Simulated scan of single mutants.
Amino acid sequence: MPRDRIPVTIEGRELELSNLDKVMYPAAGFTKGEVIDYYTRISPVLLPHLRDRAVTRIRYPNGVDEAHFFEKNKPGGTPSWVRLETMPVPGSTKSRETIDFVVVDELPTLVWLANLAAIELHTPQWRIGADPDMLVVDLDPGAPAGLTECCAVAVLMRDRLAASGIAAYPKTSGKKGMQLCCPISGTQSAEVVAAFAHAVAEELAAMVPGSITAKMAKQLRPGKIFIDWSQNSAAKTTVTPYSLRAGSSPAVSAPLTWDEVVAMATGETPARQLGPAEVLDRVATHGDLLADLLRPGPRVPDQDTSHRGTSR
């Protein structure tokens, strides 16, 4: 066996790790071995958010500065013990098109993907065979707006959702912006959930038109926060909590407390993305700040009577 291939047994599963010294984040010198180490150590809180969800991977075989690709289907050489679910491709115009999605229910599968340089993990708002159990609000800043402004809009969105009986939990995106994740009942279609999210986004954009937009057009976004309600489409995925993100240095889609969001919004503390070592320390101290996402929430309003002029 080549010296750069190391056989390991994890929870009774046999796999090989390779090229552990390969640098994945050149500017930071962060290696594939460190990627695998992070995913192994964060797995107690990450795996519950991956479980029973079809995972889309973004792979960077030669590091974050080189070519990457999205992967939904199982890769060649997938071990027999990896859970696969054959499902239609969400949003596909070919009604009979199906692919074999990987489902990450256990640590060996997570380590196997990390060894394939699957740096980013993205999951849908629904569990396999079910309706959405999570509403996602993606807050995307248009320069010169940034994470500080995202945090201010997040507080507005939190309060608006609370008025409809929906609790929101914040996390950084690991890139420019942030997301709010809201546990919902899992008894309504993606169309109903997306329509509600769209209505609320338009309502806030009408309240603060100088700072918020709910429209997709990129030319309308400079200096504003785009509330991307379309993340609730059945065909969309969102970066999974605790996933690494590709960038100049390793960052994590990291849960925040609302006190932290308010402090960032007001400038009391600098608004910033968080790295893997810091996130591991936070989990050791606070546990999973997103644990409530794993429990059912309320139904979203089918018709939000407090929103004027919205028809679906």
Rank of each mutant, 00 (worst) to 15 (best):
P2R: 08
R5W: 12
G12C: 06
R13N: 06
L15F: 06
S18L: 05
M24F: 09
A27Y: 08
T31C: 02
I36Q: 08
I42V: 15
S43W: 02
D52Q: 07
V55G: 01
T56L: 13
T56C: 07
Y60Q: 11
A67I: 15
F70E: 05
E71N: 11
K72N: 06
K74E: 13
S80C: 01
W81M: 05
W81R: 01
T86I: 10
S92H: 12
S95E: 15
S95R: 10
E97F: 10
D100S: 15
F101T: 08
L110M: 07
V111M: 10
I119P: 02
Q125A: 15
R127M: 13
I128C: 00
D131W: 14
D133A: 13
V137N: 07
A145S: 15
C151Q: 02
A152E: 11
R158D: 00
D159F: 03
A162P: 04
A168Q: 03
A168D: 08
G174E: 09
M178D: 03
Q179N: 13
S185V: 00
A190P: 15
E191V: 01
A195S: 13
A195Y: 05
A201W: 04
E203G: 02
A206C: 09
V208G: 03
I212C: 09
A214V: 08
Q219E: 14
I225R: 09
W229Y: 12
S233E: 14
A234N: 11
V239W: 06
T240F: 12
Y242T: 09
G247I: 14
P250G: 13
P250N: 11
V261F: 08
A265S: 11
A265G: 12
T269E: 13
R272C: 00
Q273L: 14
A277K: 15
E278G: 07
L289K: 06
L289M: 08
L290E: 02
L293K: 03
P296C: 03
G297Y: 03
P298I: 00
P301T: 01
D304T: 06
H307R: 10
R308F: 04
